[in-house]
């Protein structure tokens, strides 16, 4: 069943149209990988789905309802969470407060319970709960950012470039949590420049280029033929048997 879709959406900033006529579908319980070079519109796609960037045209469908007119906070309350590029924590607040704000509308007991779940996923955070977010390392920040997003117990998680600026060993840790989240019923859209990493776990892969979707195919398709992705990047989409 389709959880979240964009139907022919266009969005941008000022005079710039960053994505155009973009349609993607996220199936329940699956991971949709979005890859593409710099400026392809990957982050804008996520921001448009989340409601941070206004749509110029098209619709965003959540469980069959059009949510294109809803602001970001309302979409978050429906069950969509997002980890933004650059983490974007609340720097003046402690790690614990950052996490708890992720479950702002939950009861006190519920927030504590969810915090324990997040700490079980990222045990390293337990020792730094009282630390101010501004002094954390990049890896710690990323764990807090993912943890904060999970505090709302989302059905859908949008993750923007989780590997950006982090050491590979830290990125490995972050990526280890994704199958666990899928197992817990969280559907994921993952935007990433490191194509290899996305490829290893994506059920479906979408390739963007200059604001347009240039290819969409099953993750297995690319895993079986690693050379195919390079061909898609070079524009020869027929090499993998089709495309959009």
């Amino acid at each position: 069943m389709t959880l979240l879709s964009s139907l022919n959406i266009s969005a941008g900033y000022g005079d710039l149209l960053a994505i155009e006529d973009m349609s993607v579908d996220l199936e329940e319980g699956s991971l949709l990988g979005v890859v593409g070079p710099n400026g392809a519109g990957k982050s804008t796609l996520l921001r448009a789905l989340m409601g941070i960037v206004a749509l110029r045209s098209g619709r965003v469908i959540w469980r069959g309802s059009d949510i294109g007119g809803l602001p970001a906070d309302a979409r978050a309350r429906l069950g969509i969470a997002m980890v933004q590029e650059g983490r974007r924590l609340f720097p003046s607040l402690s790690v614990e407060d950052n996490l708890l704000l992720g479950a702002y509308h939950a009861s006190r007991a519920e927030r504590r319970e969810r915090q324990e779940e997040v700490l079980a996923l990222f045990p390293a955070l337990r020792d730094i709960l009282g630390r101010t977010a501004s002094v954390l390392s990049g890896g710690e920040q990323q764990m807090v950012a993912v943890g904060r997003a999970l505090m709302s117990r989302p059905s859908c998680l949008l993750i923007d470039e989780p590997s950006l600026g982090l050491a590979p060993i830290i990125v490995d840790e972050i990526y280890k949590t994704l199958p666990k989240l899928l197992g817990a019923g969280v559907s994921i859209i993952l935007v990433e420049q490191e194509v290899g990493r996305v490829l290893s776990i994506a059920d479906l892969l979408v390739v963007l280029h200059e604001g347009r979707k240039v290819y969409e195919g099953a993750g297995t398709e690319f895993r079986e033929r690693p050379d195919a992705l390079a061909e898609v990047y070079l524009g020869n989409v027929s090499a993998v048997g089709g495309g959009n």
């Binding site: 906070d73 969470a81 974007r88 924590l89 609340f90 708890l100």
Partner: peptide, 24 residues
């Protein structure tokens, strides 16, 4: 307080607060 921390969070990053489901 929860509300007070959310007010401080508005100063830090309004967009991140939206994503937490909070109406700024």
């Amino acid at each position: 307080t929860k509300v007070g921390k959310a007010i401080r969070a508005v100063v830090d990053d309004r967009v991140s607060l939206w994503i937490c489901g909070v109406n700024d």
